[in-house]
Design a protein around this nucleic acid. Structure first.
Length: 496
RNA sequence: GAGCCAUUAGCUCAGCAGGUAGAGCACCGGACUUUUAAUCCGGGUGUCCCGCGUUCGAAUCGCGGAUGGCUCACCA
């Protein structure tokens, strides 16, 4: 503690009483020659280990560390709850065991302080497994009061902005992120076991491709060029197929400069998978198997509950062509119609669309309005119109449709996959169509990527591709209705 | 971007026919050597989100703004 440090400590004019009191205790500790912000502490056990192995550990000495979450003083004895990353365990302090000096230090302990404890494992009269403290060390003094233990932190604004506090006082929040980690681990495991290689491709793209979305733009100073944060890794991963990697996947962030909602965050995590010599059928199988694998590992069952509804993830899931789905859910068969006929059909169903809406636009409108809200149980919607699928291969028997699929669960699109377009001539044609849309004002239309065409011209094996929306998967498996609940630090506007 | 709602103590909330702010927990002082939302006695610690207006008087009413939530729009 140097002079500057001490001066700073005195400067608390803007602190409320609760914080001022904590700083006084901090000062008292320093005056007693105790470092309030401790040092390395070797633990012998976690709280959970002690609780689970009490029979073997009873009477033994232990060293544990964690945050003080509750204090119950009874004069010459005190109980406290210590929380570490595994759970909570009770501490028992006695003046006749600790001596007056050490016991007196308890007066300087606040809820939230991080302590290192050495003591003996025992069980209290009331049966609670506890540690009788023989020695305590301050590892970090907490200078701010924690939210109420009983009510937790409810204010969602504060919970997201100060997630560290949320994590301290709301244990179920911690569990969501542990599950998120396990889900990603499962996906890796599953793919690696099947011979896929995990790769990393650029996040800074000279051309934002692989999806229809508005990109974020950034600037490289030395090169004096604008770059885009990637909206999808797809085109780079397919270049790897050209280069001879047959089975690759990438887990990482994508960035889309679009609206924020309960299902959209400007940066989100996807897992894209490509398998040479495969097709959409293979990727659908892979998709349902991944979900089933996660369900088994994380929930222990193919049946999960989301917002009160039971979802059965048992594979295989039904396959339902998009046009058939529309026919099934609203009785309109759009098959073979031209733009004008399709618009007329939409009008008759009361759908509002732009005057120059294309056939593909109409199909999307119908799907969004009548089908999507009904898709609760897992189903693959297949055979999307070619206009909205510029990177997917056309169906052999109908060049207006693509060999594409999207699994829907609880009305959400959970993934997107298709048989990859490996014909450079058709790909160039598709890009030109997209550019025409771009010029017509569609900012989300795909950009031309000459180098990607060149890669295809060297020859890309036929392949199946899949993009999984990790955040939505985590929402599904953790029963979270908002994407913000599965992002540690969701995007928030800065506080003014 | 639009509509609706919310914002009061560290946290969770009450208070709104307009009269100068309250509870529980936390916190502070005291008692207490097996408690566990410990208990008992005493203490309210506040920019009522911000600004302007109406009024003798605003947490409360009006207008504008900030942030958040939900819905819609946008968007895979």
């Amino acid at each position: 503690m140097n002079e500057e440090h001490m001066d700073h400590l005195e400067d608390r004019t803007e602190l409320n009483e609760l914080m001022a009191v904590r700083r006084e205790k901090l000062r008292d500790l320093i005056d007693l020659g105790i470092d309030p912000f401790g040092e390395k502490f070797e633990c012998t056990h976690s709280a959970k280990q002690i609780l689970e192995n009490f029979a073997d550990l009873e009477g033994q000495e232990t060293a544990i560390a964690g945050r003080i979450m509750s204090l119950r003083t009874h004069g010459k004895a005190t109980f406290a709850d210590l929380m570490d990353s595994s759970g909570r365990i009770q501490l028992y302090f006695r003046i006749d065991v600790l001596g007056e000096e050490q016991y007196g230090l308890l007066e300087k302990v606040d809820l939230g302080d991080i302590l290192g404890i050495r003591g003996k494992i025992f069980r209290t009269r009331r049966g609670e497994i506890s540690v009788e403290v023989h020695n305590m060390k301050f590892l970090s003094k907490s200078l701010r009061p924690l939210p109420s233990q009983w009510y937790g932190l409810k204010d969602v604004d504060l919970r997201y902005r100060q997630r560290y506090v949320d994590l301290i006082v709301n244990p179920e929040v911690r569990r969501v992120f542990e599950t998120r980690s396990r889900i990603i681990q499962c996906i890796r495991e599953f793919l690696v076991e099947r011979g896929f290689i995990e790769v990393e491709t650029p996040t800074l793209h000279p051309i934002a491709g692989g999806a229809s979305a508005r990109p974020f733009i950034t600037h490289h100073n030395v090169l004096d060029m604008d770059l885009y944060l990637r909206i999808a890794p797809e085109l780079y991963l397919k270049r790897l197929l050209v280069g001879g990697f047959d089975k690759v996947f990438e887990i990482g962030k994508n960035f889309r400069n679009e609206g924020i909602s309960t299902k959209h965050n400007p940066e989100f995590t996807s897992c894209e998978v490509y398998q040479a010599y495969g097709d959409a059928q293979d990727m659908m199988k892979l998709t349902e198997e991944i979900f089933a694998y996660i369900a088994q590992k994380v929930v222990g069952s193919y049946k999960i509950v989301f917002q009160g509804q039971e979802i059965d993830l048992t594979p295989p899931w039904p396959r339902l062509p998009m046009l058939e789905a529309i026919k099934q859910y609203c009785g309109v068969d759009l098959t073979g119609m031209n733009d004008g006929q399709a618009r007329q059909a939409a009008k008759e169903k009361g759908l509002t669309l732009e005057a120059n809406a294309s056939y593909a636009n109409v199909v999307e409108e119908f799907f969004d309005a009548f089908v999507e809200p009904k898709l609760i149980q897992p189903v693959f919607i297949t055979d999307h119109p070619v206009e909205v699928s510029p990177l997917a291969k056309r169906k052999k028997d109908n060049p207006k449709l693509t060999d594409r699929f999207e699994p829907f669960i609880v009305t959400w699109e959970m993934a997107n996959g298709f048989t990859e377009l490996n014909d450079p001539i058709d790909q160039e044609y598709r890009f030109r169509q997209q550019m025409a849309q771009r010029e017509a004002g569609d900012e989300e239309a795909h950009m031309m990527d000459e180098d990607f065409i060149r890669a295809l011209e060297y020859g890309m094996p036929p392949a199946g591709g899949l993009g999984l929306g990790i955040d939505r998967m985590v929402m599904l498996f953790t029963d979270s209705p908002s994407i913000r609940d599965v992002l540690l630090f969701p995007h928030m506007r800065p506080r003014s």
